[in-house]
């Protein structure tokens, strides 16, 4: 039994008490507006008074990674959880470089500073990027510059991200990080299949966009997507993702919510695990999914959405 993370897990046990539960989410939903929600969050220890929603989320993410940095000798063990941000930033930087634009707030927390990322792309010095990013970055930049095809650019980067997430996750310790990799890739493949079925995308697009995973047969999934949405649902009913049929029929947002809920349900047993890296990984994922729910609530309140409509997009809570 690993002794390595006993101290860290004990600290996380205390930190889990600070996570938001369903009752608090309901309080936020009942609040009259975004300001009231931010005040409630401040009282709960989230962010500081006077912050905007984005500032609050940035600070909370920084706090999570600062805590993780204190808990583990090398934060690289959680690299797989940061890859989505890294590739999001790469995609954003490619678009900023090609359009010579400056859109504040498009970058997320990542290991490479946005200015440095843009400089690398401007100078086409891809060797300064991490190895797995070099080839897709060069290809995506060329596609956007020569063909002006933003969708293909996104497709190249997203596929590279999925491949690296799966590869890194499989090489990670414990059960949760490999599970996260599998579910992330499978959820992305399902979303691609649904989108392709709805928009009539061909097999070539799906082949380029979908990444291999253990729990889905990509050949059957893309064949089903080419035949229509009901075929996709029929195929998924033969897999471990049968529950998502209803959500697929509802909307993309409902499907995304289902994917996050599936992850939350899969990591919840870690609340009772006292050893190993898994409870730490589960905490980071719980914080991330909690942030997504808070974003839904704050954005909904800001835009005057109906309470029921927002409630439908809130993810299950970890605690």
């Amino acid at each position: 039994m690993s002794n390595q993370y006993i101290f860290a897990v004990a600290r996380i046990r205390k930190k889990e008490l600070e996570l938001l539960n369903r009752e608090f989410m309901e309080q936020l939903l009942a609040a009259p507006g975004e300001e009231a929600c931010l005040q409630l969050l401040n009282e709960k220890g989230y962010g500081t008074a006077g912050q905007t929603a984005n500032e609050l989320f940035e600070e909370e993410e920084r706090k999570t990674w600062q805590l993780v940095g204190e808990l583990v000798p090398d934060v690289k063990v959680f690299d797989v959880l940061r890859l989505q941000n890294e590739y999001h930033n790469l995609k954003a930087a490619i678009k900023e470089t090609c359009t010579a634009g400056t859109h504040p707030g498009i970058y997320l927390n990542g290991s490479i500073a946005p200015e440095q990322l843009e400089k690398i792309l401007l100078e086409r010095d891809f060797r300064k990027l991490p190895d797995p990013m070099q080839e897709p970055a060069a290809r995506a930049l060329d596609v956007l510059l020569t063909l002006r095809d933003g969708q293909m650019c996104d497709c190249i980067i997203d596929r590279a991200a999925l491949d690296q997430i799966r590869e890194t996750a499989l090489a990670s310790d414990g059960e949760i990080l490999p599970l996260y990799g599998e579910l992330t890739v499978a959820a992305a493949d399902i979303k691609i299949a649904v989108r392709s079925a709805k928009t009539g995308k061909g097999a070539d697009f799906m082949k380029q966009a979908m990444a291999q995973c253990r729990t889905l047969d990509l050949r059957r999934l893309s064949q089903a997507a080419a035949a229509g949405l009901e075929e996709v649902i029929s195929y998924l009913k033969t897999t471990g993702y049968a529950d998502c049929a209803e959500e697929i029929r509802k909307s993309t947002a409902a499907l995304e919510c289902w994917c996050d809920n599936l992850l939350i349900r899969s990591i919840r047993p870690q609340l009772r695990n006292s050893f190993g890296i898994d409870p730490l990984a589960a905490y980071i994922l719980a914080r991330r999914i909690e942030s997504r729910s808070l974003r839904m609530i704050l954005t909904g309140k800001r835009n005057g959405f109906d309470e029921e409509e927002i409630r439908g997009r809130i993810r299950e809570t970890y605690v």
Binding site: N3, I6, F7, A10, R11, K14, K15
Partner: peptide
Amino acid sequence: VGRAGQAAAGVVAED
């Protein structure tokens, strides 16, 4: 005692 001590230190670090 060593294992339990690590966990105890983790809890005391927070509370």
